[in-house]
Nucleic acid binder design. Structure first.
Length: 488
DNA sequence: TCTGGGGTCCTGAGGCGA
DNA sequence: TCTGTCGCCTCAGGACCC
């Protein structure tokens, strides 16, 4: 392990929720919860104000609503988050060519490789400056951890949250780790945590004391060796800038279990088409087709088939997925279906006939996508208005959808630069003066050139209105009008 | 009461050829 | 020719991460 704390871990604070608060002044200081708003949605991120009520990531949305009924509930706007994330990643790449993004809101940076830091003080300075730069460029806060390894840098940034910086001094690592719970270590989730607890091991120090042989006996070879090394603060994993994609998959959870076998078959075909579009979009093909089925009782099974050569042919993937489905009993109903492709290559080995058939099928698939996009943004000729998405009104200007339902849409007219919360007005959903709009930049610095906003047409539509967060007043709560229905 | 979506990695069973 | 074994591959499931 290197002796200088020049591995940096950046973690943006409550990223999705913070972006929403920055773009909607009326939500600042309020409980904001971002996630799937359907009956089976879960929380993606929530603001620190929402965490006070016990809400956290991955919690079922229904539970979050019970804990924080007056919070603002918004659907994620991934395109906007991606745009902001690119701004942040650009700042990281200015520090070093060795940047390893873990997600939209997290990354490792090897400061030493970029010459941005070489000792304790230069590392601290680089981290401090980075946080200031991020705030200036995006208006958002991020927490920084600095240490001599990835594991320790990540633990440090966790301790720094929110809006802080923690540097782990070389030589103090083991003492720092010893009292922490085993769940602190990457790779220890609920199952491994339980396993260790049953063996009387609850802290990292106890893991180190237990010894390598005992951990291997308890957790298996790979896991045991890796976790023992981590418990001793040994982590030699390098920061890796480019990671190869190993698989591509798509899956859908349905609002209501599907019992109809024909419908299940149809959904699998659609998922296969979507998966192939993603595959082709990435310029990839793959050999192994995987079908995933989650049944009514939440039991999950996968079936896979390996072809003789890699394919990106929608017809081939559809047929393989259909064959795999033949071996699965779906009579009790299914809540989730998924199709994936692994064993990836950046070339194909299809014969000419298959290629030709594929192109034909692909044309149909493209038509199908456009059709679905229309379905998602319009219902019986009327536009849909996802909660939180930006809109523009010819008279009142820029705003965002606070809620919709019963043929009405409620809009709050404000922009990221607004000093005070904007006024709220309600319109007919078909009002010709109201149209979806691109998100505005969060700061005057704006988005980088070429970065797009969110078209606002490709998101799942919520079926709930949102509350501004303050007064406990619910706006336009929709009754069952078909908006939340399962696609298809 | 309920539990998303998109990934990665590991393990163990079983088939198969050398 | 039969049998054991080793290594590799495929398949299914589980755990974990964000």
């Amino acid at each position: 392990m290197r002796r200088t704390p020049t591995i940096l871990h950046l973690d943006m604070d409550a990223f999705f929720a913070s972006v929403e608060q920055a773009s909607k002044p009326s939500l600042r200081g309020k409980a904001v919860i971002v996630g799937g708003l359907g009956p089976r949605g879960v929380v993606a991120t929530c603001s620190y104000e929402a965490r006070v009520f016990g809400v956290h990531s991955a919690m079922p949305m229904a539970q979050a609503r019970r804990l924080a009924p007056n919070a603002a509930y918004l659907v994620p706007r991934f395109q906007l988050y991606r745009t902001i994330s690119e701004q942040v990643m650009a700042l990281l790449r200015a520090l070093s060519p060795l940047v390893e993004p873990l997600s939209l809101d997290e990354a490792f940076v090897d400061l030493e490789a970029g010459g941005a830091a070489w000792d304790l003080e230069s590392a601290r300075l680089a981290g401090t400056k980075l946080r200031a730069d991020i705030r200036e460029a995006t208006g958002l806060t991020g927490s920084v951890g600095l240490a001599a390894s990835k594991m320790l840098a990540k633990i440090a940034s966790e301790q720094a949250k929110p809006d802080g910086l923690v540097l782990i001094d070389p030589g103090t690592e083991r003492a720092l780790l010893a009292p922490l719970t085993v769940r602190t270590l990457p790779g220890v989730g609920p199952a491994t945590g339980d396993h260790l607890r049953r063996a009387g091991i609850t802290t990292v120090g106890e893991m180190a004391e237990a010894g390598e042989d005992e951990l291997v006996r308890l957790l298996g070879k790979a896991h045991g060796h890796a976790l023992y090394a981590m418990a001793l603060a040994h982590d030699e994993r390098p920061v890796v800038a480019e990671r190869e994609t190993k698989s591509v998959s798509v899956e859908d959870t349905y609002d209501v279990d599907i019992h109809d076998r024909v419908r299940v078959e149809l959904e699998v075909q659609r998922l296969a088409d979507r998966c192939v579009r993603r595959l082709r979009g990435a310029g990839l093909s793959g050999r192994t087709i995987v079908l995933k089925v989650r049944r009514y009782d939440f039991s999950t099974l996968t079936r896979s088939e390996t072809l003789r050569g890699p394919t990106d042919d929608p017809a081939v993937v559809r047929e393989a997925a259909a064959r795999l489905l033949d071996s699965v009993d779906t009579t009790g109903g299914v809540r989730l279906l998924g199709v994936g492709v692994s064993g990836l290559a950046d070339f194909t080995q299809e014969d000419l006939f298959a290629q030709a058939a594929g192109e034909l099928a692909d044309e149909h698939a493209e038509e199908h996508v456009e059709e679905r996009d229309r379905e998602e943004t319009e219902v019986q000729g009327e536009r849909r208005w996802p909660a939180g998405h930006d809109v523009r009104h010819t008279e009142y200007g820029h705003g965002w959808v606070q809620g919709s339902g019963l043929g009405r849409v409620t809009v709050r007219f404000e922009t990221p630069g607004s000093e005070v919360a904007g006024r709220v007005r309600t319109f007919r959903v078909g009002d010709p003066e109201l149209e979806p709009a691109e998100p505005l930049p969060l700061t005057e610095a704006g988005f980088p050139v070429g970065a797009g906003g969110d078209a606002g047409v490709d998101q799942r539509v919520d079926d709930e209105a949102v509350d501004g967060g303050g007064g406990g007043r619910r706006v336009d709560r929709r009754e069952g009008d078909g908006f939340g229905a399962v696609r298809g």
